[in-house]
């Protein structure tokens, strides 16, 4: 593997793998509303593809935005990066699609950015919190440190004119229209009403999805069963497995 971070070079990636496997499984079982998640390549948990549905009653309504999440080998001690594959005209998205958001920045670097440590990455952040931040940022750009200055200026004109200056709006709506073609290609129906958007699909992950046993080969019963008696860790017959042994 070519990716080696300096500080934690000697650390095996098994802990990152474990954290990602847990998160991936969790998200498949209980999806974040407004998102679809899958792995870019089935055998690689360090790259996820997410599809973001534009939230109803916003400019992004009906939109279908794809992005790649790339996780570092020392995740969750370092943040993943998020890059949009779909064209997104947004104050906090760079020309190349990279998303700029404070919770994806490590606390240490770039002290001049004006971002407080408490707004930055920390290891209890996870894909769920990232995705929710992304969706709220879509509709409420941060114009204090824009990645796309033109978009930021245009957005402020739109906002300050209370929508009378339609240049920003028109660009977004056009991108939404284009993105719908992609959704159709993927066979995805983008929810348009608040009701459809919020309904959490109860369906279990398709059987052809990744077999997590490949990644997470332990005996813990991580399924959050309906009867939550909270007493099942390690209670099985397979007793002595600490849950941390590599297999």
């Amino acid at each position: 593997m070519a990716l080696v971070s300096t500080r934690m070079a000697q650390q095996p990636t098994s802990s990152a793998l474990r954290a990602l496997a847990l998160e991936y499984k969790g998200i498949l079982e209980e999806p974040v509303e407004g998102f679809r998640v899958k792995l870019v390549k089935e055998e690689n948990l360090f790259e996820w593809e997410v599809a973001i549905f534009g939230p109803p009653d916003t400019l992004y309504q009906g939109g279908y935005f794809k992005a790649h999440l790339k996780f570092p080998p020392d995740y969750p001690y370092s943040p993943p990066t998020v890059r949009f594959l779909t064209k997104v005209w947004h104050p906090n998205v760079y020309e190349n699609g990279d998303l700029c958001i404070s919770i994806l920045h490590p606390p240490g670097d770039d002290p001049q950015s004006g971002e407080l440590p408490c707004e930055r990455w920390n290891p209890t952040q996870n894909v769920r919190t990232i995705l929710l931040s992304v969706i709220s940022l879509l509709n409420e750009p941060n114009t204090f440190s824009p990645a796309n200055v033109d978009a930021s200026v245009m957005y402020r004109r739109w906002r300050d004119s209370k929508g009378k200056d339609k240049e920003y709006e028109n660009i977004i709506r056009k991108q939404v229209t284009v993105s719908r073609v992609e959704a159709e290609k993927d066979g995805v129906v983008v929810p348009l009403t608040l009701e459809d958007y919020c309904v959490k699909p109860k369906e279990k992950p398709a059987s052809d999805s990744v077999d997590l046993a490949d990644f997470y080969d332990d005996d813990y019963d991580l399924d959050d069963d309906d009867d939550d008696d909270g007493s099942d860790y390690g209670a099985g017959d397979d007793g002595e497995d600490s849950g941390n042994g590599e297999s």
């Binding site: 098994s14 802990s15 954290a19 847990l22 998160e23 860790y233 390690g234 600490s242 849950g243 941390n244």
Partner: peptide
């Protein structure tokens, strides 16, 4: 809580660098 917010493992298990909880 049930699990460590950093490594996401149950507290009754150990961190990913250890073998014995």
């Amino acid at each position: 809580d049930d699990s460590c917010g950093i490594c996401r493992m149950p507290f009754e298990a150990c961190c990913p660098d250890c073998r014995i909880p």
